[in-house]
Design a binder for these strands. Sequence first.
DNA 1: GTAGCAGTTGAAGTTAACTTGAAGTCAAGG
DNA 2: CCTTGACTTCAAGTTAACTTCAACTGCTAC
Lengths: 154, 154
Amino acid sequence: MGDDWLTIGELANRSGVATSALRFYETKGLIESERTDGNQRRYPRATLRRVALIRAGQEVGLSLAELAEALERLPHDKTPTKEDWRRLSSAWRERLDRQIDELIGLRDELTDCIGCGCLSLKSCAIFNPGDIAAGLGTGPRYLLGDSREDAIKT
Amino acid sequence: MGDDWLTIGELANRSGVATSALRFYETKGLIESERTDGNQRRYPRATLRRVALIRAGQEVGLSLAELAEALERLPHDKTPTKEDWRRLSSAWRERLDRQIDELIGLRDELTDCIGCGCLSLKSCAIFNPGDIAAGLGTGPRYLLGDSREDAIKT
DNA sequence: GTAGCAGTTGAAGTTAACTTGAAGTCAAGG
DNA sequence: CCTTGACTTCAAGTTAACTTCAACTGCTAC
């Protein structure tokens, strides 16, 4: 305790991430550990910040795979430099900007629709939303052909 | 063809949703069909719009379960009224508004961080983002206690 | 030295939203 | 009649991000 190295339990308590998740992150190469003689993991203090970054990145919408890539260039065992940090955070900001723009576009289209009862109009924006949610959701995204028009006739 | 009833293949082509997905939606009660003598599905035309609504709802971030609830009160076999539509679309708009606000909040906090190199400051917003992404992502959300502060010391 | 909590591994389970496959049926054209 | 393509069902596979379980081993306190 108060040491330079954290057990997995300490790291879990302090980061708010379950031990099972931490082991999982380790299998994915997101974090690294040394082992004691008894084969237990010991994490350097800097891992705390690394885990915080991972959670923050997830909130920005990044997958663990993307995070693994982004964090690859950060040092595992020491505090990242300001430059490291600046690079990461501005990349994430751009991503957020894009997400926000897309949602605002969708909202504005939807707003136009609300008053007009345009459910039956082929110009209704909500039925032709572009590829706004390309990166969201689980399922596949379909490329819609002219069939869309068909969908709103009648 | 040109009939009031669509086969699953026609509905798939015209809605841009795979037949497997349509059958899946049906098992979830999102859409309904009649059967021919030969046990094949036949969908009323109105199902086209219903499917379009489902896809639109997904883009707003609704799960199929939520959509099932929302669509429960819409007629399966005829065009929804303006009132039906107004109710749905304004509920979705509110949801979008909330999502956008949350992302903007996160972005602003991140923006504040970029210049300051605050990676080591316990006040850094990105390490204390609140429950912004409560509804996003797959994993569980942890309630973070004072351990967060711990995470950014050093 | 022994109880009992923390840690270890690998495999299997979870949820959403589908897709894919197998094995068989229906419908339309020649 | 026969082929072909669309359709049927049900079961199992897919991906992400984990969690849960079983069967052990390590560490700390009394």
